[in-house]
Design a protein around this nucleic acid. Structure first.
Lengths: 179, 179
DNA sequence: CGCCAACATTTGCATTTGCAAGTATCGTGT
DNA sequence: ACACGATACTTGCAAATGCAAATGTTGGCG
């Protein structure tokens, strides 16, 4: 945790055992992420839905009449995955698919049943978040969000610019419920 | 670039549009995690390996003669997934599987070829980490690690105790290289 | 208009994953 | 020594995923 950050390691170019950077951060991210996913799985399974499905439903619940592409982007999933999830959700009577204003886009919204599901699960999602953040001060959580957003934008496939937001600026607090 | 934001909440039990929790943190975690995964995928695909495979190889590289179970735990993957990945890696001549001291455990290590692969990819992993953390001060990164570890332990399936480590203690840094 | 590249969504097929059930080995109690 | 519950790993099968290639629509342009 001192100053040098990631200078070490790789001196191992000649050693037999690759040396691993003790300062490595990414694995922690992985662990935290999968941990949360696993923790939520149990709740989701009670409704026979997967985590990707939950994300899609939550996104659709957030605002009406979005398209598959929009949901895909916001749920952080490939469009074909999203397409299939939505098809499945529609077959299950949880999502209503009708034509958007553009003949090729769809306009999505939850059915009564879908809404019921989301409303049932949301408290659990919040509770999960609360327990995940136990022992973390609000200010720390805020910083965490900021750092994570920075990371996400740093690694995002650059459409135009690599990244931009200054380290300590707030942009727009994109909400959501759970992993 | 920043395309997330979502959630469903339901205090909205009465309103039409759900109310959103501005404090939501978990989705950021998801976005950062998948972003990193996607960013690394391209490099990995050049060697025809997946991210889970990379994690397994990196774990095996880290220390010799671990068992499937140990690798599984450290790579954060189910044991059957790990088993299959190791089988595949062995078939590809990258991992050597021999009997451990216990007749039922395996003792794993990389072959020369496997080591070559890991050594080739490690710099990329480090570079990815560096770019992911661009614009984040070392002290912030340290706090980030701490928070992520706290979250991971908070949500970990409790074998005995929910969590334990004091917020600011160092335990043992589970090594590895990337996401 | 008519052609065509761009866009939105879906789908076929090969691979990967998850779950549950298997096989094999060990350790302990009696 | 033997029965039996843990432990370590593997696998069959069904479902989920990734990728590339459809399919269906639109908007622009000559």
């Amino acid at each position: 945790m001192k100053a040098h950050e990631q200078s070490a390691s790789l001196a191992a170019a000649r050693a037999e055992e690759p040396t691993f950077d003790i300062e490595s951060t990414l694995p922690y991210l992985y662990d935290a992420g999968t941990g949360i996913g696993n923790a939520f799985k149990a709740d989701l399974k009670r409704f026979d839905i997967t985590l990707p499905m939950w994300r899609v439903l939550a996104c659709i619940a957030d605002r009406e009449d979005q398209s598959v592409t929009e949901i895909s982007r916001r749920a952080g999933q490939e469009i074909y995955t999203t397409s299939r999830l939505i098809t499945a959700a529609a077959d299950a009577g949880r999502v209503q698919r009708r034509a958007g204003r553009d003949g090729r886009t769809l306009s999505l919204r939850l059915t009564r049943e879908g809404r019921r599901l989301v409303e049932h699960l949301s408290p659990r999602a919040r509770e999960l978040e609360r327990s995940a953040l136990a022992g973390i001060a609000p200010a720390e959580a805020a910083l965490l969000r900021q750092l994570l957003r920075r990371i996400a934008s740093n690694v995002a496939a650059p459409r135009r610019a690599p990244h931009a937001s200054p380290t300590s600026s707030e942009v727009s607090p994109p909400p959501e419920t759970a992993s």
